[in-house]
Amino acid sequence: MDFNLMIEVTPLLVKAAWITIDISIRSLFFGFFIACGLVFLQSFQFAPIRWFARGYISVIRGTPYFVQLLLVFYGGPSIGLRLDPITCGVVVGAFNIAAYMSEAIRGSIESVDSGQVEASRSLGFGKVQTLVSIILPQSAALMIRSIGILAIVLIKNSSLVSIISVVELTYQAQRLIGSTYKPLEIFTLSAFMYVIIIYAVMGIIELAYRRAMRYTTL
């Protein structure tokens, strides 16, 4: 192990790790709203709207994220969609994770016993009120858990953005391996950084989960 080299390249990798974090947080943020929209579309009475949402989720989950990324980045310009690499990473990441996340959100909402809805409705709560003050608090804990798992998937997926030349952690690591010929040192450092990021996310999820557990009836 060449420790001098490791100390030397740490600032570069830390800087790149911030890009990874930045892309992941932004994708998660936008992805959450798209996912909520997809859940909402699936509750429509008008069937074609539901089919659209189901079809979107099925196609996104059925094709590789990598291909989606290449399609939007290289194929986008021919349909008039020009995005810079980072924006492309955020947008594709958000639309990709939204499909998985809408399933997670729907699952956690459906996990609440239907008796709760009936009880709440018969006590005079409106539909929206039932959703906001009865169902969501009870499904929050499960929702936080499953969104947390997806956040970790998102962080690991963000490494693929290096293919469209965003200088994030994996790209920087690959470039440093190429220039220093010290794969073990660079891999150890960059893997360590991914571990730190992922453990930080897991810690936050655990805290939020414990807080949300107060509202569950389980």
Binding site: T170, A173, A191
Partner: peptide
């Protein structure tokens, strides 16, 4: 499980290539 696939591939590719 905690590191991305692409990073592992690069490590193996360049690491073994040595």
């Amino acid at each position: 499980m905690t590191t991305p696939l692409l990073l592992q591939l690069y490590f193996l590719y360049f690491g073994l290539g040595e």
